[in-house]
Simulated assay, not measured.
Amino acid sequence: MVKTEKRDKQLPKIYSKQQILKSKQYFRKDLLEALLEEGQKYSHDQVKKILEDFLKREAK
């Protein structure tokens, strides 16, 4: 059973768009609503990168 717990901690947690939007971890829910796709699953690292990349883009 210890091996299973270790393995679970090593794998990134994957969440749906709706789960991420309900999370208290993110404060830019308006951006996430627009940037994340329905039916896709995201890890926290992926969401963080998506937000960072969008915020770093130059305005046109």
Results as ranks from 00 to 15, higher is better:
residue 37 E to I: 06
residue 14 I to A: 13
residue 32 L to H: 03
residue 32 L to I: 08
residue 26 Y to L: 02
residue 37 E to H: 09
residue 8 D to M: 14
residue 23 S to L: 10
residue 30 D to F: 05
residue 31 L to Q: 11
residue 4 T to R: 10
residue 4 T to A: 10
residue 7 R to H: 13
residue 22 K to Y: 14
residue 1 M to F: 01
residue 12 P to F: 01
residue 35 L to Y: 00
residue 22 K to V: 09
residue 33 E to I: 02
residue 26 Y to A: 08
residue 34 A to V: 05
residue 9 K to L: 13
residue 36 L to V: 03
residue 56 K to F: 10
residue 23 S to D: 11
residue 17 K to H: 01
residue 8 D to G: 05
residue 52 E to R: 15
residue 5 E to P: 00
residue 59 A to E: 09
residue 41 K to E: 07
residue 5 E to T: 10
residue 44 H to W: 08
residue 31 L to N: 09
residue 52 E to P: 01
residue 16 S to N: 04
residue 48 K to R: 15
residue 39 G to C: 02
residue 6 K to Y: 13
residue 11 L to P: 00
residue 50 I to P: 05
residue 25 Q to Y: 15
residue 48 K to T: 15
residue 57 R to M: 07
residue 12 P to T: 10
residue 51 L to T: 04
residue 25 Q to I: 13
residue 54 F to Y: 15
residue 15 Y to R: 04
residue 53 D to K: 12
residue 22 K to H: 15
residue 39 G to R: 02
residue 18 Q to A: 15
residue 23 S to M: 12
residue 17 K to Q: 05
residue 19 Q to C: 05
residue 24 K to I: 07
residue 27 F to L: 08
residue 45 D to G: 12
residue 34 A to W: 09
residue 42 Y to A: 03
residue 50 I to Q: 02
residue 1 M to T: 06
residue 22 K to I: 07
residue 32 L to E: 04
residue 13 K to A: 10
residue 34 A to H: 11
residue 19 Q to E: 13
residue 33 E to W: 07
residue 37 E to W: 08
residue 21 L to H: 02
residue 33 E to S: 03
residue 12 P to Q: 12
residue 59 A to C: 09
residue 29 K to D: 05
residue 5 E to H: 11
residue 34 A to F: 11
residue 2 V to I: 04
residue 21 L to E: 03
residue 32 L to N: 05
residue 22 K to E: 11
residue 38 E to R: 12
residue 6 K to N: 09
residue 35 L to F: 02
residue 15 Y to A: 06
residue 5 E to I: 12
residue 23 S to N: 12
residue 11 L to Y: 04
residue 42 Y to S: 00
residue 35 L to D: 02
residue 11 L to T: 07
residue 13 K to G: 03
residue 60 K to D: 00
residue 2 V to G: 01
residue 25 Q to V: 13
residue 36 L to I: 06
residue 10 Q to C: 06
residue 35 L to T: 03
residue 11 L to N: 08
residue 14 I to G: 03
residue 31 L to S: 10
residue 2 V to L: 02
residue 27 F to S: 12
residue 59 A to G: 08
residue 20 I to F: 05
residue 50 I to A: 01
residue 45 D to R: 14
residue 34 A to Q: 13
residue 50 I to S: 05
residue 23 S to E: 06
residue 48 K to M: 15
